[in-house]
Design a protein around this nucleic acid. Structure first.
Lengths: 187, 187
DNA sequence: TAATAAATGTACCGATCTGTTCACTTTGTC
DNA sequence: GACAAAGTGAACAGATCGGTACATTTATTA
């Protein structure tokens, strides 16, 4: 189907929420910034929460697609791709508008474990975990899940540290640590 | 010296902000929850932001004191203490009210690099870094700063992952990774 | 006991919040 | 050109936002 006002709204809302936060971004402000009328917004989404959930779905799709492709560009073998993950992170951290992970932010503002926004954020992290476990399996490691979880701790740590410190350095710190972990892991 | 209303307010505000978030916790709600009148709150703090900054100061003091002591209880030598950090984290994750790192949340809701709340959150992380570098130095590692930054990435990653996944497991994942990193590091 | 400081309750301010209503204009399709 | 779908602007509701005003009560201390 053709891209329409709805997609345009979700895309622009993503930008606004990512830059300003969820609670801090009101629907009036959103209407002004996207130049889409409030009436129209509420015709597509019954509540702000539904809009946020749509934004998170788009973010998940965009981010994972980007990451997977970038990793494939950077490395050929699964073993090298596990390391290339951190080179991709560095690219991300160096982007001008980098403000950390949208899902960490979302789960920070909607903390209840049962809240749809919190659950959807957790889903995103689980999908990434599945992906990295897959790489570790293909690379032939004996405990791919353990290894993947450790690498992902480095990834999450690098994201929040890069955001708080306003530097891309954590990407390379994490990469060095990841290399050490891989060298230490049995096949 | 008896605890004053001011201290009581800051202490209770900490609990409320930690559980509900900063934007989502209004001053009226805060007054109701702490049973301290709004008038009184605004006599001690001119703005909500000033209150939040006081809350973060208290949190920093409480958390670092707790962490340092717990680590000293758990291990004697600097080398062992670097690992005990992750046992301490596990204790924290298992506490009933655990909701992640207050400073990550704060910097998530107040994202501008120059914002006082963001800066103060970054200060907290810097002080922790100084502490861990100190341990790595005393333990005799050749590149204590590099090692400390890597260990801290594991720590931050474990915190956000424990919060999102509602499990304490990331503490032990991080601990295993930390042990591997230490074994791999030259003295 | 009297003076003083600290805390209270309540009502209020203007602004903003999420969400709705309504009359009107644009757009795409047959 | 007719018609329906989609989008618009502006006003509005009821609640809440951060913050203030004021008169009253409670504690501390001389």
């Amino acid at each position: 189907m053709r891209p329409t006002k709805r997609d345009e709204l979700v895309q622009k809302a993503l930008t606004a929420f990512y830059r300003n936060g969820f609670h801090a971004t009101g629907m009036d402000m959103l209407a002004a910034e996207t130049r889409i009328s409030k009436t129209s917004m509420y015709k597509h989404f019954r509540t702000k929460e539904e809009l946020i959930l749509a934004v998170l779905r788009l973010r998940d799709e965009n981010f994972r697609n980007w990451l997977y492709r970038r990793i494939e560009e950077l490395a050929d073998t699964p073993g090298q791709q596990l390391i290339a993950l951190f080179d991709a992170l560095e690219d991300w951290f160096q982007e001008p508008g980098f403000r950390g992970c949208m899902f960490i932010k979302a789960s920070s503002e909607y903390q209840d474990a049962g809240h749809p926004i919190h659950r959807q954020s957790a889903d995103h992290k689980r999908m990434l975990e599945t992906y990295v476990i897959g790489l570790a399996q293909k690379a032939g490691y004996r405990d791919p899940a353990d290894l993947a979880r450790q690498l992902l701790l480095l990834k999450e740590g690098a994201i929040v540290t890069a955001h708080l410190g306003h530097t891309a350095r954590p990407a390379m710190d994490a990469k060095q640590a990841a290399i050490a972990l891989l060298e230490n892991s049995e096949k």
